[in-house]
Design a protein around this nucleic acid. Structure first.
Lengths: 206, 206, 206, 206
DNA sequence: GATGAATGAGATTTCATTCAT
DNA sequence: GATGAATGAAATCTCATTCAT
């Protein structure tokens, strides 16, 4: 029984992601989610307070996972470049593997003044903070010479990844998103003044 | 009379921008727009087909203006760096001076599968194309050595500016948005491998 | 236009009385009221906040009228007996002429803890107070020798009239309700120790 | 087991009385009754056909008991006055001791056109009949000189007691209800022309 | 018999749009 | 052209009742 309930909760959440991605939160009827989840309309309300609650929990849980994932990937990184690579690669790969979730985020995360924004603001800010910490650590370790505003550098890193994701969603093509990891990383490295990969290798070889 | 009609059309559009920015397109009642525009509900339908039509025309006209403005700013630019500066500065300044419009763009431009997206896709793609042309021209003029994908570089430039705008909207503070122009420009220059400003000057002096 | 709107408001109120009387407030759908009033469902909400608001205004306005009527009838009365007669007669006649309203009152006025009760409590208490004042004035004028609790006497007077009304409603027969005025008045007179009508006349004749 | 079943049935009935008294029949969810009775929602349907059936049986059984009680109290009465006293006193005391039941009766007994009314009409009519019989017996025994309509006299007696009960319920105070027995009895005696208590005693002494 | 998760019919209310004035 | 009262389709959410366990 416990498993079945857990299942149903997840089933509804999965259906909601697909449904929201397809038509957008506002145009999506609860009945559509129910149908896609294979449950009755009323069942939704056994697991969620209301329609907005679905959206909020969806982000809290699924996006929460994403940020945890990035953090854990970071632990095994020794230098700024590999940390940046971890961020870019994990972000793009996660979105690639969760296209519907990515779609919903791109669309619904911009609504200001909603309880959704309040709910999601904290984890998102955490993510921003994480990126900024990577840069600051790079500066402390003398890997980066700080000729820029860390805040703006973070906007560049997140903004670029986010825009690439948006383009990928709207393109609807089957092309890969994560394939741009290296290119993006080179741009960021150059922007931040990180030494090129080959140089690092050379330094290590000596 | 002709002027009065023109007036009313613009009044409704202005009211709609404010109203959409305040509560979002979906939560915004047509009656609210009418009230804010100082016209009767029914009058709106003399100038617009329906609620979505307001949004579409709003973008087409106001964002269209924006892109034209960027293009015209570009004409007086001689090199890649000043072209990039024109883009960044014009974009940030325009949004700063049209906060409500900026808000609406950030929010509503992401809805997939709407006639809105179809309507806006073309001018937006034009803007993207413009950015890419600046980069390509820089490569052709040997200002930039192309060690990256132009597409991704454009995502970086637009994504960074766009993210900065989003942050500025959500911050709700009175701080300036355009003040980050220089910082952003340095990051882009470094990323694209453009020579530093002082070097350019020196070259010109010689 | 003004007349038409006033009309519509009253039409809805009239329809609501009939509808509530027929099936009770809770079982009555807003759609039924709309149909009976000859308007669209949504029109109801141009004139009333919600379903409960209809019920509240219904009582406030229609029952308010009733109590005002009793008060005005009272003004022309010189002694306790004629005042009591005015109360009994006006009450029974009003209910007789407004059967649906009477039905709704009997049913819905007993719901405790509703905003309806809060809304109606004041005028009802006023009515109770009025009855008690009639008795107290009778005592002051030496028409009544106070061998009882005024409060209980009021419960008797109102309770009897109210019960007669309830019986009349449930009987569904076409028999008159107000025909019992005299009988009721004699019972009240005897209960309160008022002299019989003939005695009064005699006293006056002497 | 048989006892346990009986128990559960009564437990549900008791819970229903409390629940209905608290929020009213219509606003009361079956789940609330179940919770208050300490059983599962579904269990209710093993003992009752549906929600309305709970209300009907509640009245039939609990109010039935009440009327039986009055009848039995009556058996030991020798004259009209003591019979009336038995009615008033038993009625008020019973309600005082069963406040929740009293509340439910006051509220729900007025719904027209329900199977509830049909179900309750018979015992209630029996009670009315009982009161009328007391009056008629008083007339036959020459205790009362019939200058009134027996029907109306009954409305007075029941109406007064009933109104006092309603007032007591809505007052929510802890004051006694049955304390008004004597006062009420004096009013009824005077109204019906019954000799005063002291006179009766004298008559008996002679 | 007892459970309580699941059901889905149904009711209120909103609001984009129309159209008589 | 302008109005704004009226419309009625549509969507969320509730809750009495069922039924597999």
């Amino acid at each position: 029984m416990a498993i079945s309930q857990e299942d149903k909760y997840e089933k509804i959440l999965d259906a909601a992601i697909e449904a929201f991605a397809e038509v957008g939160y506002h145009s999506c009827q609860v009945a559509k989610i129910a149908r896609m989840a294979g449950v009755a309309d009323g069942t939704i309300y056994l697991y969620f307070k209301n329609k907005e609650d679905i959206l909020i929990r969806l982000f809290k849980e699924r996006m929460g996972r994403f940020i945890e994932l990035i953090r854990s990937e970071m632990d095994s990184c020794q230098d700024t470049r590999s940390r940046l690579r971890a961020i870019v690669h994990t972000h793009l790969t996660y979105m690639e593997n969760n296209r519907a979730l990515a779609t919903v985020s791109q669309i619904e995360l911009r609504q200001p003044d909603t309880s959704l924004y309040t709910a999601i603001a904290f984890p998102l800010r955490n993510y921003f903070r994480l990126i900024e910490e990577v840069i600051e650590e790079g500066i402390k370790q003398n890997e980066i010479i700080p000729s820029f505003n860390v805040h703006v550098a973070r906007q560049m890193i997140f903004g670029t990844i986010d825009r690439a994701t948006t383009d990928w969603i709207f393109a609807r093509s089957e092309r890969s998103l994560s394939k741009d990891t290296d290119c993006m990383l080179e741009l960021f490295s150059a922007a931040l003044g990180l030494p090129k990969e080959e140089n690092i290798k050379k330094k290590n070889e000596i």
